[in-house]
Amino acid sequence: MISDATEVAARVDMVQIFIFGMMAFWFIACNAVLVYFMLRYRRKGPDDKVANIKGNHTLEIVWTVIPCILVLIIFYYGVVVWKDLRVPPKDEPVYEIGVTGQKWSWSFKYPNGATTGNELIVPQGTNIKLNMISSDVIHSFFIPEFRVKEDVIPSMYTYLWFNAKHAGEYNIFCTEYCGKDHSHMLGKVRVLDADNWENWEKTGLMLGEERLTPLENGEKLFADRGCKGCHSVDGAKLVGPTMLDAFGRSATFASGEAYTVDDNYIANSIKYPNNQIVAGYPANQMPSFDGQLSDSEISDIITYIKTIKSE
């Protein structure tokens, strides 16, 4: 069905199997008896005699007490495993990563100052704790293979933790409805083995990976950071203005002031998007990337935007 990629996930599956077993038993038991009664006591003629039974106290007490005991067992088992799913093990080192959710992308900030978008890079076999906050509406951070999920809320930090068993790639979904491109607010967890992780932490590159040119890096950032969701590169009008022929374009702000798009304007708009809203577009839609993108990354994005030309 779905693999479990952490040790706790395997234990969650045990709870799941236990409950599924119980569900199957009761489902089959109830409906087998139902169908049996339907067939066995089906009406044979208008003068059928029926048993004048109005109830049975012993039976009713038994079938009240047994479910009580069973649900208490399920509850207890669920809480025990959930505690380990929820709370990182004490007295063990924890690697903490900051997560910001925004319409419609994820940003990750690592202890060494590195940042990534939509791709969470973590070492294998390490306790990872994510400290999460939203910069706009409520999102929810979900990694099915790790069986973890927690809402990402504005103005309030939430957390989750995991410890991935193997190197590999896993899906990240947003599971709290957050508007138009909710279903495209997807990410990946890349779990790296020790060598690869050491290299990535130092250089920001995978083993054997070439450093990107500013243009390539700008294009990658433009996709990974969710810019594409609102700013088309083909002239279509989405939530925000298109980037096609954007550089050097002249237009007016909502305030009526005229402007021409240059390097400074793009850099400012990435950091403080609500300062200068282009006429005809809604305010308070774009999150601020101040502190989430380095100056060098912003400069790469500008390099890329300059190349988006219709001819």
Partner: peptide
């Protein structure tokens, strides 16, 4: 019966939403 895994904490985290 499918409400049971949703009421159970350990399994609801995965199944929620």
């Amino acid at each position: 019966l499918t409400g049971l895994p949703l009421a159970t904490l350990a399994t609801d985290v995965h199944l929620h939403d």
